[in-house]
Every structure is written in C-alpha cells, then in structure tokens.
C-alpha cells in the first residue's frame, strides 16, 4: 500500500538494485568459469542464469550478514540493511567455505528450470558436481554424514525463496515509480521474458 512506512522501506531500492545488478555480473562471471557451462547453448545458459541468479545472490548475501547486529553490511556504515529491510532474504547463517561454491554450482545446473532445453546435459553436469560435493564432504567433514542431505534440502528452501522473490519482484515491477529505479540488467534478468 502507499503508507509512509512502505515508502521509506523502499527508499534504498536504487542502492539495492545497484548491488543486485553488480552481483548478477559476478554470478555470470562465476558461471562462465564452471567447466561445462559455456559448452551449453546460449539459450540454456541464459535460462539457467535467469532462474538461478537470485538464489546464488541470496546465498552470497549471507557472507555479509552479521549475527551480532542482525544486519547486512553492503559497503560502509551508511549502507547497512537490517533484517526488516530485507525480511525475506535471510536464509539462515550458512557456513561459507568452498562447499558453498559447489552448492552454488548445483543450484545453477538444475535441469528443471523454465526454458531449459538440453535437460540431459545439464543433469549430467549437476550429477558430476554432486559427486564432487560428496567427495569434498567426505574429506573435509568426516563426521558430517547428514551434511549432504541437509544441503540438498537447503536447495529446496532456496527455491521457495526464489518463488517468493519472483512474487515480490512482479508486484514491484508493475509499479512504474519503482521499476524505473531498477537497472536494465535487473529488469532483463528478473523480467518474465524467456529466451
């Protein structure tokens, strides 16, 4: 609604849009480094990025989240987001180490994303990553036999957050006064247009 509280809550939208826009570019750079990604068709690369970018960004945002004051630091004291600013984004404090990277890859290579064509190939890429993640856990977390299963469960949680984000994005982008504050890249990646 148009309450004052609602307006002030969106006052950081331009900065948030910039942050997300920057993060999308990082996600694209990250995806390009994963063996196999660039061998996919351009259409599949685009479909995977459009559907998974927000999940990777949400995962990464946990690295700048402080449990001490329950806020995200996004470049200096002037750019702090408290939990209320971004209520739906926090997904619990992830331990950020290299297993997170494998995890991000696995989310990226989900063959059941909308618009994906070469399902078999993407599934094969994900299977390979699952094997690597399991091996990584065996070596670095010998006692963590349930860790892999828990992480797979978290992928499902990320999906729900992705859906929530899509809903919120849609309602935001229908309001011209808000959508004009987004960047062209954000509009393109989160827009509904499928490649």
């Amino acid at each position: 609604d148009s309450s004052e509280e609602d307006n002030s809550r969106l006052s950081m939208l331009p900065h948030l849009a910039d942050l997300v826009s920057y993060s999308i570019q990082k996600v694209i750079g990250f995806a390009k480094m994963i063996p196999g990604f660039r061998d996919l068709t351009a259409e599949d690369q685009i479909a995977l990025l459009k559907s998974s970018a927000i999940e990777i960004i949400m995962l990464r945002s946990n690295q700048s989240f402080s449990l001490e004051d329950m806020s995200w630091s996004c470049g200096g004291p002037d750019f702090k987001y408290c939990v209320n600013d971004v209520t739906k984004v926090h997904i619990g404090s992830f331990v950020c180490e290299s297993r997170c990277l494998w995890y991000e890859c696995m989310g990226l290579f989900s063959a059941d994303r909308p618009g994906v064509q070469d399902h078999a190939r993407i599934e094969a890429l994900q299977d390979r990553l699952c094997d690597v993640l399991q091996a990584y856990i065996r070596i670095h977390h010998p006692g963590g036999r349930l860790l892999y299963a828990k992480m797979i469960q978290k992928l499902a949680d990320l999906r729900s957050l992705n859906e929530e984000h899509s809903k919120q994005y849609r309602s935001l982008s229908f309001q011209p006064e808000h959508s004009m504050q987004l960047t062209p890249l954000v509009l393109e990646v989160f827009g509904s247009e499928v490649s």
Binding site: K32, A42, I46
Partner: peptide, 17 residues
C-alpha cells in the same frame, strides 16, 4: 526464437580477461 536478453548475451560473450 527471439534474440532478446541482449545484456545477458553481451555479458556471456565478452572476454573476462
């Protein structure tokens, strides 16, 4: 197929070095 998503295509194509 439409040749849209121009920014994504550009970012995917560009050489990162």
């Amino acid at each position: 197929k439409k040749k849209d998503n121009a920014l994504l295509r550009y970012l995917l194509d560009k050489d990162d070095n």
